[in-house]
């Protein structure tokens, strides 16, 4: 058997390299999977301790509005009603998305349909910069500009849902915009040409053809924006007022899930009910982020079906 024949039938340096490379890559990806599993497990197990260990009623936790985890109410139950935080979190999220969406749509339409070359070139860095500004800086600007401004108009402290909404509006704007741009770009060129050839004006084309066929993508963009708003902690915490009250209006101090967590987790002792209750808030955040994820997947599937048919 000659040398070449032998080499053909033996492992070589290349075989070992490939094996090593695979081991490295599989390890890295395994690490990420393990990490995600750990996060879910840790937060979930801490989060349900309130209900399993401290015997708080889940329903009561979600629907009552007294949050004094250290104290008991008249019936001897711990007072852990998370409703004010839940309501506030959803309010700022929905309001921010509601305000930001028209702006995001406008900018995205401008970048793809009206001035696809110059406009896109000019606005792309604007969006990237808005994404790049750290949330504490948004919080600081909110604190030094928006809060006094609101105070000036509506009186009171200026802290509250309205300030939170305005700060979040600017923060989710780039997210929604850039994803909307992607989905508008994905609309095939011949849709536009066909519509314009039929004598439709540009706006009719945009409104009746392009926005319609990009709807799943735009909804996905909005959900991503909402996920960002829902999970945002510090910027909101700086302008929301951090009072654990059921929000009565948009300009009274309130508290979101995230703001409550950032303020209090360091002031409670691990393993006690006040601390467990906070982890339950974290669990709500985690679950909501999973829900947003599922909605995005669902929309993605629907979008695919729509494009395929």
């Amino acid at each position: 058997m000659d040398d070449i024949q032998r080499k053909l039938q033996q492992n070589s340096k290349a075989t070992r390299e490939d094996r090593l490379g695979k081991v490295i890559c599989y390890t890295c990806i395994g690490f990420i999977i393990l990490l995600v599993a750990c996060i879910l497990y840790f937060i979930a197990s801490k989060g349900i301790a309130t209900f399993t260990k401290d015997h708080v009623n889940v329903w009561q936790f979600l629907t009552t509005s007294n949050w004094e985890p250290g104290n008991l109410d008249s019936k001897g139950h711990p007072m852990v009603g998370a409703l004010p935080m839940i309501v506030t979190s959803f309010s700022v999220t929905l309001l921010a998305a509601l305000v930001a969406t028209p702006f995001a749509l406008g900018v995205a339409i401008f970048m793809t349909e009206i001035s696809a070359k110059k406009g896109a070139k000019m606005l792309q860095p604007v969006i990237e910069l808005l994404v790049g500004i750290p949330s504490v800086v948004y919080g600081f600007i909110g604190l030094s500009l928006i809060v006094p401004f609101i105070r000036g108009i509506f009186g009171g402290t200026g802290f509250g849902i309205l300030s939170g909404t305005l700060v979040l509006f600017v923060m989710v704007l780039p997210t929604i915009t850039s994803l909307t741009v992607d989905s508008l770009k994905a609309v095939p060129m011949h849709y536009r040409q066909a519509s314009l050839a039929l004598g439709a004006t540009r706006w009719q084309t945009i409104y009746k053809v392009i926005l319609r066929s990009a709807t799943p993508g735009i909804l996905t963009a909005i959900i991503f924006g909402m996920a960002r708003a829902f999970g945002e902690a510090l910027a909101v915490q700086m302008v929301i007022g951090n009072a654990i009250l059921m929000p009565k209006n948009l300009v009274s101090p309130a508290s979101t899930l995230t703001s409550k967590l950032t303020t209090d987790i360091g002031n409670t002792v691990m393993g006690t009910l006040p601390n467990d209750a906070l982890w339950s808030l974290a669990l709500i955040l985690l679950l909501m982020s999973l829900v947003f994820n599922m909605i995005v997947r669902f929309l993605g599937k629907r979008g695919n079906i729509k494009n395929a048919s």
Partner: peptide, 20 residues
């Protein structure tokens, strides 16, 4: 069959095959 070796055999060293 190349040089009396079945190079389609999964055990054959594919990197050596491609060198030749």
């Amino acid at each position: 069959m190349y040089r009396n070796v079945d190079i389609n055999d999964p055990k054959t060293n594919v990197y050596e095959v491609r060198k030749h």
